[in-house]
Structure formats: C-alpha cells, structure tokens
Design a protein around this nucleic acid. Structure first.
Lengths: 343, 343
DNA sequence: TAAAAGTAGACAATCGATTACGCAAACATA
DNA sequence: TATGTTTGCGTAATCGATTGTCTACTTTTA
C-alpha cells in the first residue's frame, strides 16, 4: 500500500512550498500562471487527491449532512432519502443515515452522533412519539448547524421545514368520497402529536362540515400505520349501530387492512364501501383492486429539503432564514373509491 | 454560538498540558488517578466532546463506512441498509449512502467520492450493467480499504461477500412448481452478467433436469425487474405453440406483471397457471391473491455484511480474510402457486 | 547516602490543507 | 536615481487530538 500523495509531495517534487501548491490548486490569483499549470500537471501525474479530513478539520466543514428518519425501509422515507442524496450529491455533500426507530432516545443519540461527526447540517423527520429532544434540537441551532424538518416537523422558531399540504389534500380526499355518494365517512387517525396527522384529521373534518355532514366521533379511530390496526378498526366500526360507508385513512397500510377485512365481511369495495389511503405506497397501485391514495411527493420533498439546506449553508450574510415549504400532493383516484358516479 | 471545548481548554482550566488531558481521557496508565478523575470531571462539566475530524485526520480513520447500492428506494436495498446501519451503529460507525442508479459511471464516481472521504470501508452491491470499474475496485483494495460485496457481487481475489443461496432456492422453487403439477415452466431471467441471476437460472435449469423435464430455451425470457417486462414476457410466451403453465421469475415485479397480464387473458392463477416471484417485496403478501416468493433475508444480509466488515477492520494481524457468506433464503409459498395438490 | 528505578507529566512533532503576513525581486513612476 | 507598487512565493500558525521522547521528581535499593 502506497501512501496518498499530499501537497507536500508535490511541493518537494517541484521545489516549491506546500503553500504554493495549495494556492495553485485553489486557483488563488497570487500564483503565476506557469506555476499553476506545473502544479496542476504534477498533481494529476502523481494522482493527488485532496484529503477531505484535513480540509474538514481546518475549515470545520465536513461536507457531510446527516439525515434522521424513523426508519429507512419504508417506501416513503427511502424515496425522500433518494431525493436528498441526489440533490446533495451534485454539490459534493455526502449523506449520513440514522434511524430513530420512532424512539426518542435513539433519536437523541442520532443527533449527538451527527453533531459529533461534525455534519454540516441535519435533515430530519421527527420520531413518532411526542419526543422531547428539545434540548438537543436547541443545541443543533446553537451550534449554527442548519436544521431542516421534512414531513414530520416540529414548530421551532427559525427552523425551516418541507411538508405537503396535508390539510388540503385530506379535504380533497374527503370531498371526493362525498362525491362518490358516501355520507358516513370514517377516518383512521394517526398520532395527533404529529402535525401531519393532525392536519389530515382537520382537513377531513372541515370537508364534512362544509358539506353539511355531521361529524361523528365514533367514526374516528386512532390507528398506527400497520395492517392489523386497519382490520381491527373495521371490526370496531361495524359493531356500531350505524356503520360507515367509507374510510379516509391517514395511512395506506391501515387502509389495506380495512379493505382486506371488508372483503372478509363480504362488503363490496367500491360498490358498497369506498376507501382512500394515504402515502401512495407501491402496493396501492399493484393491488387487483387498486387503492385510491395520496402521493406525498417524497422525491420532491427530499430534493427540496436538500435545496433549503444548501440555501442556508450558502447564506453568508448570516441572515436568519426560516423557510416553510409546502409541496403540493396529489389525490390519486383509483378503483377503491371509483363508482363512476357523477353527482 | 460558543466554540466547542477542546482538550486545550480543559488543559488551561487545570493548568496542565493538552497531552495529559488526552492521556487522561484515554485511560493511559501514565496519568495519576487523581489527575484522571479531575480531567474527567472537568471535561464533563465543560461539556467536552471529542472532535472526530481531528481524530480522523490523526489516525486516518474516519469511522464512516460507505454503502453503494443501485438505488435506495427499493424494499430490498432499503432493508439491507437498515441492517447495515443497525449493526454498524453499535460500533460507532456512520453509514454514508451512495446510489449508482445501475450506472457504471456513477458507480465509479461513488467509489471515488467514498475513497476521497476516507471511509474506513465500502460495502457495495454492484451496478446492473457489466460494469468495468475494476481499476477502481483495485484501488480500493490497494488502499487497504475493506471491500465487501452483498447480493450482487463480483468475484475478486481477496474480497469478501454476503449473498443468499440463489441456486438452491431457485431449485427449490422450481421443484415446488413441478410438485404443483406444472411441467412447462418458464423462467424470467435477469441480467446474466450478475451472478445472482445466473445462479437463479442455473437452479431452475437443474431442477428441470433432475425431474426429467426437458429444458426449453423458448421458455426463458430475458427481463428487467419491472412490471412491463413481465407483461410483455407473458404475451411472448403465449404466442408460442405450446405456452407454459408456470413461471419462475427472478423478480417479483416481473412476476406481478405476469399475473396481471394472465388475468387480462382470463387465465386463472393458480388453477391454470402458477407463478413464483423472487424478493418477497411487501406487495407480494398484500395482494388479494398473494404471491409465492423468495425471502432474500435483506436485514440479515445487511447485518452480516457489516459484521464481515468489522471483522476485517479489527483484524490487526493483517491476515488476508476472504469470507464468502451465503445466507439461507426461504421459499414462501403463497396463493399464486398453491393448488393444494399433493403429488 | 548515593545510585538506580519508577512515576507523572511536559515538550514538541504529526496528520494534510489553508491562509495571514512578510519579504524580495521586478517593474513603474517621478 | 530614488521611491512606490505589484507580483510571486516562502514562513509559520492553525484546526484538535495523539504519541514518542525527555525531564523533574519521588521512591526504592544497595
């Protein structure tokens, strides 16, 4: 194994100092054209590669960005990360991945790890539990490390975020169900400590209200984003005196569980019952009876989060930037809620 | 923003030198117990955190590990990465993600980026094309950076790999189809420059042979891992004089495309036609007619790849370790190939 | 008591790149 | 010619932690 070439090696080779080599490589104007050319050529010949670690130590910039997600093996987060990686890659940043597993403690550890690794910024989707890592988040801000939330955000003064218009699209989804002739619409509600789920619930509620449909608390079932909860919820709903005729679910997985359970009960979807999910998980379009869902624009969200980070990092004036980007999501109407009725 | 505390700050505070502080923090025996305690306490009080960048520069170890995958937004790779991250996290390593997009050039760039970032190891699944980044791979090895392939490997002297027993499980899958009464079994074949697909094909072929079924080249269709190729392949197969009665697909996506197209043609699965996919993508079990598939044990694969890396990095004796780990995968028999017939 | 041995910590170099400062030579101006 | 300016590059400090070598002091041993 041969040692890496350093600027000192090049300097020795040319009989100049490392400082001059550094300047030449960085196109510093204080170097003559001839020397610069010589240095460039020699560097290429000796296969010189800048030592990022030395640069990082000197400049305090590691060119690494940390991303914290609840988990990576979910289509949504994986796609967001893909977007982040692609955007940042073009700007020579690397992406370091941490998983919080919806666990407050691990989330805290991840933050510490990333700060410790001297990342240049942290992009995160907060853990599911109503985590109280506020001290750590404060530390990120105090250290002047750009922090950007995506999807699951917290409202913190001065912190940018990228989300989708959960309220609007949920409103739209609910109206869509109403237009299909449904009037007893249930909602599978996610963790209300997270704004996204709160907004989905609010959008649903408002749509009912605006269309003269009374809100029924019995139709709102708290669910985690897993198949089983959807099944359980359907059972619960059908034990009511007047069961619903549609579900707007805040998750594709619970919606899928619901559809399976409805089938078990012999209830025809969409003829007798309409279902709308949320997330546009790949399986929604692969199902025999494809599922209406909401595209959360994960790729775009990742790219946008990365762009917001880049803006902040390039903001030399030290002006506080607080950007709240809200992406447009899209209701994708498929079989599970298409009665082909025009009301 | 307050500057981070360094060992110099602690040294000044205590009237000793930074060297002593460093030794105290590292439990070097040349430091008295009293001084060590004092240093520890002061460090805690001043909220000292070791600067990883300085350490990295000094030691040449960054505690970052690079992972290169074709893409991250596929369930398989995301799960592998999850496994890698979880295992390495426990050993204080961070994971840097790069996507090659099945593109040889980007794969090369990723390798360069990672080497440049001084990662302590590279775990990769090679790009789909028969890439010729051998020079770069050689550079990794020359630099003594541990390189570990997972799933899609190349056979390089001295390089470890973690894969599944593609041949065996493909054999098993084909035998399973035969046992269901199928005798004209087609195969959706992946890129044969990749060992995994080669082995799946070979396992399929051997199973036919061992069961006295003649191999028919017309039944082998080259496909990329996308829905459309599965549909197209079914059309192609049914334009044959004697169409097959089963498919063993090397990908879940093509298998899904096939099932959709079979349905379109009014062919009943599994009654008239059996289908086995590969990969255990989430949708396979969510489908109304769940799909038989092969679990590739991605989480385990990730963890194992990480473990092999850790072994190599901790191998002080500088003995060449070449480990070829083959994980057991599992045929998951579901509806798409279950005729409940015992032959 | 003097020499030998051991202990605790200081000093300084090192990892590789960047950069403020300074200096000498070349050139321009008066 | 004397003075000022520009150009091109060298010197040395810096980022923060680690570590080989050296030194002053203490303790042990003969």
């Amino acid at each position: 194994m041969t040692r890496r070439t350093t600027i000192y090696d090049i300097a020795k080779e040319l009989g100049i100092t490392a400082a001059s080599v550094s300047r030449a490589l960085n196109n510093n104007p204080k170097i003559s054209e001839s020397t610069r050319k010589l240095v460039m050529e020699t560097a290429a010949k000796m296969n010189y590669k800048q030592n990022k670690l030395a640069l990082a130590l000197r400049s305090g910039k590691s060119f690494n960005v940390g991303v914290i997600v609840p988990r990576i093996d979910s289509n949504f987060f994986a796609s967001v990360i893909r977007g982040i990686e692609e955007e940042l890659n073009e700007h020579q940043y690397n992406v370091i991945i941490c998983q919080s597993h919806e666990n407050e403690k691990r989330e805290g550890e991840s933050i510490n790890t990333l700060l410790n690794a001297q990342v240049d910024g942290i992009l995160m989707s907060v853990s599911n539990v109503n985590s109280d890592n506020s001290n750590l988040l404060k530390r990120i801000i105090e250290k002047n490390v750009p922090l950007i939330f995506f999807d699951r955000k917290k409202n913190i003064e001065g912190v940018s975020s990228v989300t989708i218009n959960d309220f609007d699209v949920s409103y739209e989804a609910t109206v869509h169900l109403i237009k299909q002739g449904c009037s007893r619409i249930a909602h599978f509600m996610g963790n209300q400590t997270l704004e996204i789920f709160e907004n989905r619930f609010k959008g649903y509620k408002k749509a009912l209200e605006d269309n003269g449909i009374a809100f029924n608390q019995d139709y709102v079932i708290q669910t985690k984003s897993v198949l089983e909860d959807g099944k359980r919820a359907v059972d619960e709903l059908f034990s009511l005196e007047s069961p619903p005729d549609a579900i707007f679910s805040s998750s594709d997985f619970t919606a899928l569980g619901a559809i399976k359970q409805l089938k078990m009960k012999g209830i025809k979807v969409p003829k007798d019952f309409c279902v709308v999910g949320f997330g546009d998980e790949p399986f929604t379009k692969f199902m025999e009876l494809s599922m209406t869902s909401v595209d959360q624009a994960p790729l775009e969200m990742g790219k946008m989060a990365a762009k917001v980070f880049l803006e902040q990092i390039n903001n030399k004036d030290n002006i506080k930037i607080e950007k709240k980007v809200v992406l447009k999501s899209q209701l994708l109407i498929r079989d599970s809620s298409s009665r082909n009725i025009i009301l």
